[in-house]
Protein backbone atom coordinates (compact mmCIF):
# COMPACT_ATOMS: atom_id res chain seq x y z
CA UNK A 1 0.00 0.00 0.00
CA UNK A 2 1.54 3.27 -1.03
CA UNK A 3 1.25 6.55 0.80
CA UNK A 4 -0.92 7.89 -2.00
CA UNK A 5 -3.40 5.06 -1.56
CA UNK A 6 -3.46 5.68 2.18
CA UNK A 7 -4.14 9.38 1.74
CA UNK A 8 -6.75 8.63 -0.88
CA UNK A 9 -8.57 6.26 1.44
CA UNK A 10 -8.42 8.60 4.40
CA UNK A 11 -9.76 11.43 2.26
CA UNK A 12 -12.49 9.18 0.91
CA UNK A 13 -13.42 8.17 4.46
CA UNK A 14 -13.85 11.76 5.54
CA UNK A 15 -15.46 13.09 2.38
CA UNK A 16 -17.95 10.24 2.05
CA UNK A 17 -18.84 10.64 5.71
CA UNK A 18 -19.44 14.35 5.28
CA UNK A 19 -21.31 13.89 2.00
CA UNK A 20 -23.55 11.19 3.45
CA UNK A 21 -24.29 13.10 6.64
CA UNK A 22 -24.80 16.58 5.26
CA UNK A 23 -26.11 15.96 1.75
CA UNK A 24 -27.53 12.54 1.14
CA UNK A 25 -29.12 12.02 4.53
CA UNK A 26 -31.43 14.89 3.61
CA UNK A 27 -32.77 12.91 0.67
CA UNK A 28 -35.65 10.69 1.64
CA UNK A 29 -38.75 10.04 -0.34
CA UNK A 30 -41.80 8.01 0.51
CA UNK A 31 -45.53 8.06 0.92
CA UNK A 32 -48.15 7.81 3.66
CA UNK A 33 -45.80 9.05 6.34
CA UNK A 34 -43.07 6.52 5.67
CA UNK A 35 -39.79 6.99 3.81
CA UNK A 36 -38.93 4.35 1.26
CA UNK A 37 -36.16 5.86 -0.84
CA UNK A 38 -32.76 6.57 0.65
CA UNK A 39 -29.42 7.34 -0.90
CA UNK A 40 -26.31 5.70 0.52
CA UNK A 41 -22.91 6.76 -0.72
CA UNK A 42 -20.59 5.71 2.09
CA UNK A 43 -20.52 1.99 1.14
CA UNK A 44 -18.31 3.20 -1.68
CA UNK A 45 -15.48 3.55 0.83
CA UNK A 46 -15.58 -0.14 1.71
CA UNK A 47 -15.97 -1.05 -1.93
CA UNK A 48 -12.94 0.94 -3.03
CA UNK A 49 -10.52 -0.31 -0.36
CA UNK A 50 -7.54 -2.07 -1.93
CA UNK A 51 -8.19 -5.72 -2.76
CA UNK A 52 -5.39 -6.98 -0.53
CA UNK A 53 -6.54 -5.15 2.62
CA UNK A 54 -6.74 -7.66 5.51
CA UNK A 55 -10.27 -8.76 6.11
CA UNK A 56 -10.47 -7.77 9.81
CA UNK A 57 -9.19 -4.30 8.86
CA UNK A 58 -11.90 -3.89 6.20
CA UNK A 59 -14.53 -4.88 8.73
CA UNK A 60 -13.12 -2.58 11.39
CA UNK A 61 -12.96 0.38 8.97
CA UNK A 62 -16.53 -0.35 7.85
CA UNK A 63 -17.62 -0.36 11.44
CA UNK A 64 -15.87 2.93 12.18
CA UNK A 65 -17.31 4.69 9.13
CA UNK A 66 -20.80 3.39 9.93
CA UNK A 67 -20.40 4.56 13.49
CA UNK A 68 -19.37 7.99 12.22
CA UNK A 69 -22.49 8.24 10.08
CA UNK A 70 -24.54 7.05 13.04
CA UNK A 71 -23.21 9.76 15.30
CA UNK A 72 -24.59 12.41 12.99
CA UNK A 73 -27.85 10.63 12.16
CA UNK A 74 -28.87 9.76 15.73
CA UNK A 75 -29.29 6.11 14.80
CA UNK A 76 -26.48 4.65 16.88
CA UNK A 77 -25.50 1.20 15.58
CA UNK A 78 -27.71 1.07 12.48
CA UNK A 79 -25.27 2.23 9.81
CA UNK A 80 -22.38 0.66 11.68
CA UNK A 81 -24.06 -2.75 11.79
CA UNK A 82 -25.04 -2.61 8.13
CA UNK A 83 -21.62 -1.51 6.95
CA UNK A 84 -19.88 -4.11 9.13
CA UNK A 85 -22.01 -6.71 7.41
CA UNK A 86 -21.19 -5.25 4.00
CA UNK A 87 -17.48 -5.27 4.80
CA UNK A 88 -17.76 -8.87 5.90
CA UNK A 89 -19.52 -9.74 2.63
CA UNK A 90 -16.98 -7.92 0.45
CA UNK A 91 -14.70 -10.94 -0.19
CA UNK A 92 -17.71 -13.09 -1.08
CA UNK A 93 -18.94 -10.46 -3.53
CA UNK A 94 -15.47 -10.11 -5.00
CA UNK A 95 -15.42 -13.87 -5.55
CA UNK A 96 -18.87 -13.71 -7.17
CA UNK A 97 -17.88 -11.05 -9.70
CA UNK A 98 -14.35 -12.37 -10.28
CA UNK A 99 -13.10 -11.87 -13.81
CA UNK A 100 -12.46 -15.06 -15.82
CA UNK A 101 -8.70 -14.94 -15.24
CA UNK A 102 -8.86 -13.82 -11.62
CA UNK A 103 -7.69 -10.59 -10.08
CA UNK A 104 -4.36 -9.12 -11.09
CA UNK A 105 -2.13 -9.01 -8.05
CA UNK A 106 -1.73 -5.26 -8.43
CA UNK A 107 -5.35 -4.58 -9.37
CA UNK A 108 -7.44 -2.04 -7.47
CA UNK A 109 -11.23 -2.15 -7.50
CA UNK A 110 -11.43 0.70 -10.00
CA UNK A 111 -13.02 1.23 -13.38
CA UNK A 112 -9.60 1.62 -14.85
CA UNK A 113 -8.31 -1.76 -13.73
CA UNK A 114 -11.38 -3.93 -14.01
CA UNK A 115 -13.83 -2.15 -16.34
CA UNK A 116 -17.08 -0.28 -15.85
CA UNK A 117 -19.22 -3.38 -16.36
CA UNK A 118 -17.42 -5.16 -13.52
CA UNK A 119 -17.72 -1.99 -11.41
CA UNK A 120 -21.45 -1.85 -12.01
CA UNK A 121 -22.03 -5.45 -10.98
CA UNK A 122 -19.68 -5.09 -7.99
CA UNK A 123 -21.30 -1.93 -6.68
CA UNK A 124 -24.79 -3.33 -7.21
CA UNK A 125 -24.01 -6.36 -5.07
CA UNK A 126 -22.28 -4.30 -2.37
CA UNK A 127 -25.23 -1.93 -2.24
CA UNK A 128 -27.72 -4.81 -2.23
CA UNK A 129 -25.99 -6.41 0.76
CA UNK A 130 -25.74 -3.08 2.52
CA UNK A 131 -29.32 -2.01 1.89
CA UNK A 132 -30.80 -5.36 2.93
CA UNK A 133 -28.74 -5.35 6.12
CA UNK A 134 -29.55 -1.74 6.85
CA UNK A 135 -33.29 -2.01 6.34
CA UNK A 136 -33.42 -5.25 8.27
CA UNK A 137 -31.72 -3.52 11.20
CA UNK A 138 -33.94 -0.48 10.73
CA UNK A 139 -37.24 -2.36 10.88
CA UNK A 140 -35.60 -4.86 13.24
CA UNK A 141 -38.08 -7.60 12.35
CA UNK A 142 -38.57 -9.96 9.42
CA UNK A 143 -42.29 -9.29 9.86
CA UNK A 144 -41.72 -6.12 7.79
CA UNK A 145 -40.30 -8.12 4.89
CA UNK A 146 -42.44 -6.24 2.38
CA UNK A 147 -41.17 -2.91 3.67
CA UNK A 148 -37.58 -4.13 3.53
CA UNK A 149 -37.95 -5.29 -0.07
CA UNK A 150 -39.75 -2.15 -1.24
CA UNK A 151 -37.15 0.08 0.39
CA UNK A 152 -34.31 -1.93 -1.10
CA UNK A 153 -35.86 -1.92 -4.57
CA UNK A 154 -36.33 1.86 -4.47
CA UNK A 155 -33.03 2.80 -2.82
CA UNK A 156 -30.81 0.50 -4.85
CA UNK A 157 -31.19 2.28 -8.26
CA UNK A 158 -31.04 5.73 -6.65
CA UNK A 159 -27.86 4.98 -4.72
CA UNK A 160 -26.35 3.21 -7.71
CA UNK A 161 -27.05 6.26 -9.85
CA UNK A 162 -25.36 8.60 -7.38
CA UNK A 163 -22.37 6.28 -6.96
CA UNK A 164 -21.99 6.01 -10.74
CA UNK A 165 -22.03 9.79 -11.02
CA UNK A 166 -19.44 10.12 -8.22
CA UNK A 167 -17.14 7.60 -9.88
CA UNK A 168 -17.54 9.33 -13.25
CA UNK A 169 -16.77 12.72 -11.71
CA UNK A 170 -13.81 11.80 -9.49
CA UNK A 171 -12.62 8.75 -11.44
CA UNK A 172 -10.62 7.27 -8.53
CA UNK A 173 -7.37 5.67 -9.56
CA UNK A 174 -6.46 3.91 -6.38
Amino acid sequence: MTTGMLINNVLRFVLLLVAQVFVFNQIAWGWSGKDFLFVFVYPLFVALLPLRTPRPLVILLGFLLGLGVDFFSETLGLHAGALTFTAYCRPLILRLVRPRDGYNIKANPTTEDLGSGWMFRYLSLVLLAHLLAFFLLQTFSVLFLTDIIVKTLLSLPASLLVLGALILIFNPRA
Partner: peptide
Amino acid sequence: SGLFTFAGLQLLCLYLIVNHNDTQ
Protein backbone atom coordinates in the same frame (compact mmCIF):
# COMPACT_ATOMS: atom_id res chain seq x y z
CA SER B 1 -10.30 -13.68 11.99
CA GLY B 2 -12.63 -11.84 9.58
CA LEU B 3 -15.56 -13.83 10.90
CA PHE B 4 -14.62 -13.14 14.51
CA THR B 5 -14.13 -9.44 13.88
CA PHE B 6 -17.44 -9.33 12.08
CA ALA B 7 -19.28 -11.23 14.83
CA GLY B 8 -17.83 -9.11 17.59
CA LEU B 9 -18.51 -5.81 15.91
CA GLN B 10 -21.98 -6.91 14.80
CA LEU B 11 -22.89 -7.85 18.35
CA LEU B 12 -21.63 -4.47 19.49
CA CYS B 13 -23.78 -2.82 16.82
CA LEU B 14 -26.84 -4.79 17.89
CA TYR B 15 -26.20 -3.76 21.47
CA LEU B 16 -25.92 -0.11 20.42
CA ILE B 17 -29.05 -0.37 18.28
CA VAL B 18 -31.12 -1.86 21.05
CA ASN B 19 -29.86 0.62 23.61
CA HIS B 20 -30.03 3.83 21.60
CA ASN B 21 -33.03 3.48 19.26
CA ASP B 22 -36.56 3.53 20.59
CA THR B 23 -38.32 1.47 17.91
CA GLN B 24 -35.74 -1.26 17.93
